[in-house]
Amino acid sequence: MSTSEARLEVRQLRVSYPVRGGLLRRAAEVHAVERLSLTVTAGRTLGLVGESGCGKSTLARAIVGLRRPTGGEIWYAGERVDDADAARRRRLTTQIQMVYQDPYSSLNPRKKVSFIVTEGWRVHRGQVPRDQWTDRTAELLARVGLAAELADRYPHQLSGGQRQRVGIARALAMSPRILVCDEPVSALDVSVQAQTLNLLADLRAELGLGYLFIAHDLSVVRHISDDLAVMYLGRIVETGPAATVYGAPAHPYTRALISAAPVPRPWASPPAERILLTGEVPSPASPPSGCRFRTRCGLAQPRCAEVEPELRTVAGREVACHYAESSLADGGPPVTAVTR
């Protein structure tokens, strides 16, 4: 398969959870992901940022087939994945693998590293012939920078960074083209996080992998991403080339997010605008009408409560805000925006 075909496309995806309650105790639905579209191509990284509960992990789980979408489509390499029959789906999804946030709970504590890494080969028979397992395991461990002896250890005998490498080796075992990384370095200390980020960058270059890199740490996402998507309450509010979005954010939420992210050496860069958002993310069970961000937005106007803004192209990126132009120009009327 050529690199250009290894393309993951999510179209108007919706993922819902049933919730019970409400006045009449009727079953209701929470749309954790709502009409969300994105594309991940081999060799490139799409960074996805957003606050906790905005639906990042639900999206990741839907993409790798751990959660059934309730609307929209997922395509991979020109074939629709989400409605494929089990066998075809399994074949397609081996090429999309996931790396989890928590290297502690995502590995079976009772199995040795050698078993964990080869697990996929047990499920997908024929992927790698049995007599090659030992050699291939050694190769994979070497590739992620782990000593061969570690194959005989149990997860609790490894450090957090080593465990995360085992998680990456396990994903690589299936020879994927796309890796969905859900907060892959959030649980790691700074120095080990840097080692892991370098490893991911090397693998992308050597194997031509495409990443969907989900994180809440903007500096990490900025570092590794070619493109950026910002998510708020189940929807993408801004997406485009990382340098464009990060350099001149157009959505008021993106601006707030960037301004809130602590910078290691604030004195080394020009004083940045500081926007303090009031309040916290509303419950996805009852998102605000119109624009979902309006309850925390300093630019909100009556129209924002009535009409939900759709993504549209503004200055080289897509943004879902009625007032993106004025937000981009000067921040618009600073109502609750506090600049220090």
Partner: peptide, 24 residues
């Protein structure tokens, strides 16, 4: 010094990081 070099610099995205080798 190693800790400072491990953090991605906001003005140099994608630049290779220089982590501290090994583990505590």
């Amino acid at each position: 010094r190693g800790l400072m070099a491990s953090v991605p610099a906001p003005d140099r995205p994608g630049e290779r990081l220089t982590p501290i080798e090994g583990m505590p």
